[in-house]
Design a binder for these strands. Structure first.
Length: 429
DNA sequence: TCTGGGGTCCTAGGACCC
DNA sequence: TCTGGGGTCCTAGGACCC
């Protein structure tokens, strides 16, 4: 079997870089992007990192610093980020169809099929092309396994002189050097729990981890540990995953714009989030057999309360109206009007394809019920596709909008809304 | 006053079976 | 009074990712 070779393409400070695309004036200023409700910092420019603003910092604790240092803040603008992400994927797919879109700002490419002699030069060219055609700065790491490519990508981003590109394939000394320069908690798969546990065992760097006996690694970290050691020594455990994987769940949740004791506000939020999830189900030709609703108070305040309700459907469904009605009824029965509710989550599980609807033990699929609701839903979906999302929606979604998160600092949806296109002004000489 | 949202996978333990 | 061993399924919770 031929040895494997991967490239990781990773956008630099993705959300911030998206905002900068349309704001040339922000190129060298500190910029942060905030989560929904403008709660915490989810993306930071290099300059913002240098000011000591940590990832996930609660924005309210840093307002003073933002002000004194001239940090520019944005609310997350996911419409914009999604569109930029698609453009990059489109470009990379033209380079090779052997691509795994790992997240909104990262993709793995399988390089085995490409006939290239100088990977370093190739990566430099790819990087220049993404910058030229989309305007996005990226880093590229190349190695025999995904875990090693991630590590190479991290160093490509930070080590001066590398210019955003690092190939550590086929060079044991280089690989060892960069592994020894990688702190254990920066290894892909080592999080806030395993990091301290490993350090307590004397494992401080990726190189220390690579040298563990696989059995011992498995004892410490389960089967992941064993795979991690293999990946760090160049044995590929994680292949490229292209589309075709079946999705396990769909979840939508929101922290409310303001905490509430009113049932109608919660009903509106449930209706809206459930219908969003259900239309995603239909877009992927799936049906859910289980739905869960969780309603909670603020966990940062005393007297934290959770209401958790699970429903199993005899006939799998993608009918947002039906699922909403069930979930709303379940919440209503357990609703406590003295609580200040803070957040609601909707989850759809046990997904099956519409095409292989399983009959129950008596041979029934309730096909008629499914078909009549699916005709109605198809009509709704095609209207919304043509005239825009939410053109047709449930009245319950309009009962209140006070649950909707605040996005006071959102930039225009430059590339996805006709009303918000960027405007170019010509200055007279 | 103010602390995101959307996912996946593994494991331990209980219930139950023969 | 004695109190096995092997197996499956389900669930909750933990851990990780971006």
């Amino acid at each position: 079997m031929a040895a494997s070779l991967f490239a990781l393409i990773d956008c630099d400070n993705f959300f911030v870089s998206c905002e900068r695309l349309f704001r040339a004036d922000l190129q060298s200023r500190p910029v942060v992007v905030l989560s929904s409700n403008d709660g915490c910092v989810v993306s930071r420019s290099k300059e913002a990192k240098a000011l000591g603003i940590p990832m996930a910092a609660p924005a309210y604790q840093y307002q003073q610093l933002f002000k004194s240092q001239g940090v520019v803040q944005f609310s997350a603008n996911f419409e914009l980020y999604g569109d930029i992400s698609e453009r990059i994927i489109h470009l990379l797919t033209a380079i090779t169809p052997r691509i795994e879109v790992y997240s909104v700002d990262e993709a793995f490419l399988s390089l085995n099929e490409l006939d290239i002699s100088d990977w370093q030069a190739w990566a430099v060219a790819v990087r220049a092309r993404v910058l030229q055609e989309v305007g996005m700065p990226v880093s590229i790491g190349i190695a025999e396994t995904k875990t090693l490519a991630k590590i190479a990508g991290e160093h490509a981003k930070h080590v001066a002189g590398l210019e955003g590109v690092l190939d550590i394939s086929g060079q044991l000394d280089r690989r060892r050097h960069y592994l020894s320069e990688t702190a254990i908690q920066d290894v892909w798969g080592i999080g806030r729990r395993l990091g301290p546990r490993l350090r307590a065992e004397g494992v401080y760097t990726a190189l220390d981890l690579a040298r563990l006996r696989p059995r011992y690694a498995q004892q410490l970290m389960g089967v992941h540990g064993r795979q991690l050691v293999a990946e760090l020594t160049g044995q590929c455990c994680h292949q490229l995953e292209q589309e075709g994987r079946v999705r396990q769940s769909i979840m939508h949740g929101r922290i409310f714009g303001e905490d509430t004791q009113q049932f109608v506000v919660i009903e509106a939020a449930i209706a809206s989030l459930t219908n969003k999830a259900a239309s995603r189900l239909r877009a992927e030709r799936l049906l859910a057999q289980t739905a869960v609703v969780q309603l909670t108070t603020n966990r940062h305040k005393p007297g934290y309360q959770r209401l958790n309700h699970r429903l199993n459907f005899q006939t799998p469904s993608a009918d947002g109206g039906y699922i909403t009605a069930q979930l709303v009824a379940a919440v209503k029965a357990n609703f406590n009007p003295h609580n200040w509710y803070h957040r609601v989550n909707i989850m759809l599980y046990d997904l099956v394809s519409q095409d292989v609807l399983q009959p129950d033990m008596f041979g029934n699929t309730n096909l008629e019920a499914v078909q009549s609701s699916s005709q109605r839903l198809q009509a709704v979906d095609s209207i919304n596709k043509r005239y825009g999302r939410q053109t047709v929606h449930y009245a319950a979604e309009d009962l209140s909008n006070s649950w909707q998160p605040k996005r006071l600092l959102r930039s225009p949806r430059y590339t996805t809304s006709w009303q918000e296109l960027p405007v170019v002004r010509l200055l007279k000489p």
